[in-house]
Design a protein around this nucleic acid. Structure first.
Length: 435
RNA sequence: GACCCUGUCGUCUAGCCUGGUCCAGGACAAGAGCUUUUCAAGCUCUCGACACGGGUUCAAAUCCCGUCAGGGUCACCA
C-alpha cells in the first residue's frame, strides 16, 4: 500500500509551493489508492504557532486535499530519543556539549561512502558523504533536528514514497545514511521542481509567496487554483489545460513530472479562474460571494433575495476573473445610489440628455411585460423615433444606471435593476422642466 | 567557494527515454480581426523557442562531451 506524506511546519502560512507539494502527494496517493498522511513538523517550539497550523489545515481542506492520518512531531520526542539512544549505544553517534548554554546534543557520525539516490523524477543522483559533516540528531535543548525526526517518522509511519521539493535533494544523502544506520528500509524518493518567482529566484515573502488563504480571499476558485498548480510541472498531455481533478487522478503518473523549475504566472491563473467561474454553478459562486457582499454591506446574509443574486451572478459570470470582481462590478445592483466617477460622468453625461432619458423612461413605464426583449424593443423604437445611433444612447444610459462604462448588455442591466430603480436613476439626469 | 539539479516561444508546456512523421504543436500574455451595445466570453489570424560550441549519425530538439546560464543546498531552521 502506497503511503505518502505532506510535512508542513507551522511556522508560516501554506504557500503556493507547499500546496503544490501537498497536491502531488495527494494525487499520487489517489492514483495508487494509497494513504495521504499529514505530519506537522512543529519541533521548533518558538516559531510554531497555532494560527499557522489552523491556516494550513483550512487551506488544505479548501483545496480538497483530505488527509487520512495526522501526526504532530512535538508529541513524539520520546520516540526520537529512543532512536538516538540506539545509535549512541551502537557507537554510531556521540554526544557533545554546546559551546554556550546547557544540555547535550547527540551527533551522528558520518562515514565516508558513495550514496546513490534513485529519484523517481530525476533518475540516479550520486553524492560523496565525505563532503558531509557529522549531523546533529538531537539538539542540546532535547528537540530532534529536521533530518532525524523526518527519517524516524517516515520509517515508523511506513511512508513508501517521499515526494517533496527539489530543495530537499541535498538532505536526501544525509537521510539515507540515517536509514542505513537505523536499519530502516528506504522509501522511494521523488523531488519536485521548485516554483520560481517571476523576478527570478525562489518564492519568498517579497516575491510572490502568497498564502493560499489569500488567494481564497481574493476570490479564486479552489478548483482553478488546483488546476493551475497541476499544470506547473505536470501535463496531462493531448494539449489539455482545463482538467477535472478526477480525470487528473486517472492520468497522473509521477514519471511525467517535469525536471525543470517553473515560474509562477498569475496571468494564467487569472485565465484559469475565469475558465472555472464561467462554467461554475452560480449557486456555488453565491456561496463565495455572500460573505463578500455582506462585508460590503450590500446584503444582509440572513435576509436577501437569493434568486436575484444567482441571476446576477449568471449575468456576470463570463466576465469575472475572480468572485471579488463581481462585488466591484455589480455594486450598482446592491446600493441605493450609484457611485459616479466625475470624469466618467463628464465624458458620457455632459450633454443634456433630458429629452432622450425622459422619453425612454416613459416607454419603460408603459411596458406591461417588463422583460429583456420588451425593454430592447422599447429602446429600438425610441432610437427610430429620435433618428440617432443606438450607441449614442446606450453608453450614457449604462453610465447613468451603473456608473460604469463596461458591463453586461444594457437591456439585461435594466431588467435586473427593475423599472423603479431605472426610472429613478435616469431621473437624476433629467432636468425638471422636461420631467 | 564546494556539491547537486536544470536548460524548448516573455511565461506554462508537448515532443526527448524508443533519433527521421518537428523549417517544433498547444495554452497564457501581446497584437490584429470577426461580433457589435461597451467589457468579457467565443471564433479567426499574427508575433514568438530547441542556451552556445563540438562530436556520433545518411539524419539530432531528441544520443555523447564541453562551455555558459539559471536554480538549490551547505544551521543545535524546517
Amino acid at each position: 500500500m502506497v503511503r505518502v506524506r505532506f510535512a508542513p511546519s507551522p511556522t508560516g502560512n501554506l504557500h503556493i509551493g507547499g500546496s503544490r507539494t501537498a497536491l502531488f502527494n495527494w494525487l499520487y496517493s489517489e492514483a495508487k489508492s494509497g494513504k495521504f498522511i499529514l505530519r506537522i513538523e512543529d519541533t521548533d517550539k518558538l516559531r510554531s504557532e497555532k494560527k499557522y497550523l489552523d491556516e494550513i489545515l483550512d487551506s488544505l481542506k479548501w483545496l480538497g486535499l483530505k488527509w487520512d492520518e495526522i501526526y504532530f512531531q512535538s508529541e513524539r520526542f520520546d520516540i526520537y530519543r529512543q532512536y538516538s539512544d540506539k545509535l549512541l549505544k551502537e557507537g554510531k553517534a556521540y554526544t557533545q556539549k554546546p559551546e554556550s548554554g546547557t544540555g547535550e546534543a547527540v551527533i551522528f557520525k558520518v562515514e565516508p561512502q558513495k550514496i546513490k539516490i534513485n529519484d523517481m523524477i530525476r533518475g540516479e543522483i550520486e553524492f560523496d558523504s565525505s563532503l558531509i559533516k557529522d549531523q546533529v540528531l538531537i539538539k542540546s535543548d532535547g528537540a530532534p533536528t529536521y533530518n532525524f525526526a523526518c527519517v524516524v517518522d517516515d520509517a515508523l509511519m511506513n511512508i513508501t514514497h517521499v515526494i517533496r521539493g527539489d530543495d530537499h535533494i541535498s538532505n536526501t544523502p544525509k537521510q539515507i545514511m540515517l536509514y542505513q544506520a537505523l536499519g530502516f528500509a528506504l522509501p522511494g524518493f521523488a523531488h519536485l521542481p521548485l516554483i520560481l518567482a517571476k523576478q527570478g529566484g525562489r518564492l519568498s515573502k517579497r516575491k510572490g509567496a502568497t498564502a493560499i488563504s489569500e488567494y481564497r480571499q481574493m476570490g479564486y476558485v479552489s478548483a482553478a487554483l488546483v488546476n493551475y498548480l497541476l499544470l506547473l510541472g505536470w501535463s496531462p498531455g493531448g494539449n489539455r489545460e482545463v482538467i477535472d481533478i478526477n480525470e487528473a487522478i486517472k492520468l497522473f503518473d509521477i514519471k511525467n513530472i517535469n525536471k525543470t523549475a517553473a515560474v509562477l504566472d498569475l496571468d494564467k491563473l487569472d485565465w484559469m479562474n475565469n475558465q472555472y467561474i464561467k462554467n461554475e454553478d452560480p449557486e456555488k459562486l453565491a456561496l463565495q460571494a455572500i460573505p463578500l457582499l455582506a462585508e460590503k454591506g450590500y446584503i444582509n446574509p440572513q435576509d436577501f433575495d437569493r434568486n436575484y443574486l444567482i441571476s446576477l451572478l449568471r449575468l456576470f459570470q463570463s466576465r469575472l476573473t475572480t468572485v471579488h470582481d463581481f462585488i466591484e462590478r455589480a455594486d450598482a445592483f446592491f446600493v441605493k445610489d450609484v457611485i459616479m466617477d466625475p470624469q466618467i460622468q463628464e465624458k458620457f453625461l455632459a450633454r443634456d440628455l433630458s429629452r432622450e432619458f425622459s422619453l425612454f423612461a416613459r416607454r419603460l413605464e408603459k411596458l406591461e411585460n417588463f422583460d429583456i426583449a420588451n425593454i430592447e424593443t422599447a429602446f429600438r423604437e425610441l432610437i427610430q423615433e429620435l433618428g440617432v445611433e443606438s450607441k449614442s444612447l446606450i453608453h450614457p444610459i449604462r453610465v447613468a444606471l451603473t456608473g460604469k462604462t463596461v458591463g453586461p448588455g444594457l437591456f439585461e442591466v435594466i431588467y435586473y435593476l427593475g423599472k423603479e430603480r431605472t426610472k429613478e436613476r435616469l431621473g437624476k439626469f433629467i432636468k425638471k422642466e422636461q420631467a
